[in-house]
């Protein structure tokens, strides 16, 4: 892998086998040794290869259920691939409606855990701690367990951690739906204030404006297949045609 490459996906595919019966206990498995569960095969992602360079913002387009989220999880290293391989150069963070936070922990603890998981040292987290709290507007709830937070507060904290701590490669899955209108404006402002510049980002969005504005390249997916990967305008065109 070249040094300028952030992410390399080679011949990756993913198939899920969805079982109709629940064979998830030792007892059930023993009693049904000669009666294996019926499994439904779902090809969530068909064979695909591509490369994302460091500092590039790539968009992913496609209708619901086309495999965008599966692809993102494979690229982030959350799911293992069935075939091929994904080479990741650095830490990854997947962000959709939330990021990985424990509801049993306080906002402070979650910031330290998330920051550390994203590859930061404690001293580095100390330095950005106040920025994260202030951006999330949670100054009065620093030592409250987030299980007592409203869903909007949790989402704001997640967004703030992602924006301020950030991994080497960020996967943003419909993140502009977070928080109230005021917070959304703030989130967009962060993006526009060059946050995205110089970062490797894979952006999943149904908003053409967002994709057009930030992405230098984009992929269009349909039925688990990467139909097109390249020019953003062309990908948008294909997506619009698919929605007709």
């Amino acid at each position: 892998m070249k040094n300028s490459t952030a992410l390399l996906a080679k011949n990756i595919s993913k198939t899920f086998y969805i079982s109709e019966d629940s064979h998830n206990t030792v007892k059930h498995r023993l009693f049904n040794l000669f009666n294996p569960p019926r499994k439904k095969k779902v090809s969530a992602l068909k064979m695909t290869s591509f490369e994302i360079n460091k500092g590039e913002c790539v968009g992913l387009l496609g209708r619901n259920g086309c495999g965008k989220s599966t692809l993102v999880k494979l690229l982030a290293g959350v799911y293992p691939t069935d075939t091929g391989y994904v080479k990741i150069n650095g830490s990854t963070m997947l962000m959709n409606l939330g990021v990985g936070m424990s509801h049993e922990l306080t906002a402070r603890e979650n910031i330290y855990v998330s920051g550390s998981v994203l590859g930061l040292k404690i001293k580095e987290i100390d330095a950005i701690f106040d920025t994260i709290i202030d951006f999330a507007e949670l100054r009065d709830f620093v030592d409250t367990k987030i299980k007592y937070f409203s869903s909007g507060m949790v989402a704001r904290l997640g967004f703030s951690i992602a924006v301020n701590a950030g991994a080497d490669i960020m996967f943003l899955d419909e993140i502009f739906a977070v928080g109230d209108m005021k917070f959304q404006e703030k989130a967009i402002k962060v993006f526009e204030s060059s946050w995205i510049e110089g970062k490797t980002v894979v952006l999943v969005s149904h908003s053409m404006d967002v994709i057009r504005k930030y992405c230098s390249r984009a992929g269009f997916m349909k039925n688990g297949e990467m139909v097109y990967f390249g020019d953003t305008e062309k990908a948008i065109e294909l997506y619009m045609a698919d929605n007709q």
Partner: peptide, 9 residues
């Protein structure tokens, strides 16, 4: 799960 569901930890 929250530790590995969103990152490659």
């Amino acid at each position: 799960k929250y530790l590995y569901e969103y990152t490659n930890m």
